[in-house]
Amino acid sequence: LHLEAPLSSLPSLRQHGRERRSAMTPEQFICHIMEAEPPEIYLMEDMKKPFTESSMMMTLTHLADKELVLMISWAKKIPGFVDLSLADQIHLLKCCWLEILMLGLMWRSVDHPGKLIFSPDFKLNRDEGLCVEGIMEIFDMLLAATSRFRELKLQREEYVCLKAMILLNSNMCTSSPETAEEVESRNKLLRLLDSVIDALVWVISKMGLSSQQQTLRLGHLTMLLSHIRHVSNKGMDHLSTMKRKNVVLVYDLLLEMLDTNTSGSS
C-alpha cells in the first residue's frame, strides 16, 4: 500500500499505526474501485416477445439475482469494506442493493435515451414496461435520472465513486452503535466514506472546472443520490407487491435481500 506522507516523515507514521500507513491517495483509491467493477452480465435467455407481465418480471428478477452475486464480490473489493464488522457489511448491502443495481442500470443506459439497458441482450424501450402493472412510474423515474446523468456528462470515475458512496452511506442514519466493536466499525466506515468523497473530489478536480464549478458539480452528483434512494424504495415496494401477488417467484439471494428489506421497513 502506498505511504500517504513523504518518506521523510516516516518515523511519525509509526505512531499512527496501520490506519495511517494504509491510507491511500485518492488516485490509488480510484484505481482500486475501477478495478473492482463487475463484468457485464449477459442473460443468455430466449426471450419471447412481446413480454407478458410474468415473463418480464421473471427476466428482471433473474437478472437481479445474477447481479447481486457480482455486487457482493464487488463490495468486497472496495478497499476497507472487508475490514468492517460482518454485521455492518450485511447491513450496508441489504440497505442499498437495489440502489446499486439501479445506478448500474442508469450507467449502462446513459448513452441510450428512452431505453433501459438492463443487459446487452435485454434492452427495453419505455413502453415495453406497460405490460407490468405499476412499473411505468419506476421506469420513468429511472429514465429521468439517467437523462440527468447524461446532461451532467457523468464520467466513469465519478460513477464508480457514487456507487461506493451509496454502499458506504446506506446505513449512516440507522441504529447508533453501542458496543466497542460497533463504534470501531462505524469509525472505519466514516473514514472509508471520507476516502470515497476525497476520490470523487479528486476526479472532479481533474476536469478543468473552476473551483466553484467543481463544488457545484459535487453538489449536483450527490443530490442525485437522494433520487436513486427514492426510486429504489419504489422499486422495492413494487417487487414486494409482485411477489405477494405471485406474479413472479422470487427465490435464493434476491428473496433474502428482499425479505430483509421488507422486514426492515415493516
Binding site: V69, I72, S73, K76, K77, L86, Q89, I90, L93, K94, D252, L253, E256, M257, T260
Partner: peptide, 13 residues
C-alpha cells in the same frame, strides 16, 4: 442472510 453471509465470507476468486 445465509446466502449473503456465505458469499461475504467465502474467499473471493
Amino acid at each position: 442472510h445465509t446466502k449473503l453471509l456465505q458469499l461475504l465470507t467465502t474467499k473471493s476468486e
